[in-house]
């Protein structure tokens, strides 16, 4: 039994998502191990982002169960929670395939918005903060310190007061990850974090993800097309094709799995029927 099955942070059980007649995900089950970097890969249209949207509450799954096991012992059934509660209570944060930063706000402000919930509590839901009561001032300073910490990590501390929309593409990607980390997540879901990055930026991203995993007790679930990223940093790879899981295991295992090779590269003509039979098509 693999480590991700013995101590999973997230269990996806029999997840099915239908849009009308289209079944985007069909009876998908996999585990995300605590402290692992898990990669979700598959050809275009395989249903990877749909899985993400189900986990983070943007879609309500048609069938199935999503169990988040917090390190403090709480269990959350994500399919029953409102999207913002999933981040606020179940501590699952996400980034987007098409970057969604608050472009008109500064980089620092972006990271402050991510700490909204603890700051709201500290300001007694605005009332205390408005009157200058309670520990809001201190919490605010702490929040700025947290933001500074992450800005140093992603090398954007010098540009803290610049609008986020002014950043280059690679910086925006890293800022989005830092912003997600400011919510204090236990599971970080990254939707194609390396898309559009040059090799140097891609390497920086790898280091950042390794750092997050090591220093912050945060498990990472990522969708990625860049195989150099996937094979280098992930501990566990799940492969989807047409909404069905076709392989699940270590990077070495997946790399040599004939199903995966077939899904990505295709097969010889005389083998098509054989493979289809195996995959269950």
């Amino acid at each position: 039994m693999s480590t991700w099955d013995t101590n999973p942070v997230l269990k996806v059980e029999h997840l099915t998502m239908r849009f009308g007649g289209l079944t985007a995900i069909n009876d998908l089950s996999f585990n995300v191990g605590r402290g692992d970097i898990t990669a979700l890969i598959g050809p275009n249209g395989a249903g990877k982002t749909t899985v993400f949207n189900c986990i983070t509450g943007f879609y309500k799954p048609t069938e199935g169960r999503l169990v988040m096991n917090r390190s403090i012992g709480e269990k959350h059934l994500l399919e029953r929670m409102a999207d913002f509660k999933i981040t606020a209570d179940a501590k699952v944060a996400r980034t987007f395939q098409n970057i969604r930063l608050f472009g008109g706000m500064t980089i620092l402000e972006n990271l402050m918005v991510a700490q909204h919930n603890p700051l709201m509590v500290a300001s007694n839901w605005t009332i205390g903060g408005l009157l200058g009561l309670g520990g809001y001032k201190k919490s605010n300073v702490d929040a700025i310190e947290t933001a500074k910490y992450w800005l140093e990590r992603i090398d954007l501390i010098d540009r803290a007061d610049a609008p986020a929309a002014d950043l280059s593409y690679g910086d925006q990607r890293r800022l989005e990850i830092a912003r997600a980390m400011c919510t204090g997540p236990e599971l970080l879901c990254l939707d194609e974090p390396a898309a559009g990055l040059n090799p140097k930026e891609s390497l920086e991203l790898n280091n950042l993800l390794q750092y997050i995993r090591k220093e912050h007790d945060t498990s990472v679930l990522l969708i990625e097309h860049d195989m150099s990223v996937v094979m280098e940093i992930s501990d566990h790879v799940v492969v989807l094709d047409y909404g069905v899981k076709i392989s699940d295991g270590t990077p070495e295992f997946v790399k040599n799995d004939p199903h995966v090779i077939a899904a990505y590269l295709g097969v010889e003509d005389d083998e098509v029927e054989l493979v289809e039979e195996e995959v269950g098509l």
């Binding site: 913002f84 981040t87 472009g103 008109g104 919510t183």
Partner: peptide, 24 residues
């Protein structure tokens, strides 16, 4: 205050707000 920043974030991108745990 956090509420004011949340308003402005809402103006910028509502979906990102929800992904950050803000009750829109």
């Amino acid at each position: 205050m956090p509420i004011g920043r949340a308003w402005e974030a809402l103006r910028e991108d509502e979906i990102a707000c929800r992904a950050l745990g803000i009750n829109t």
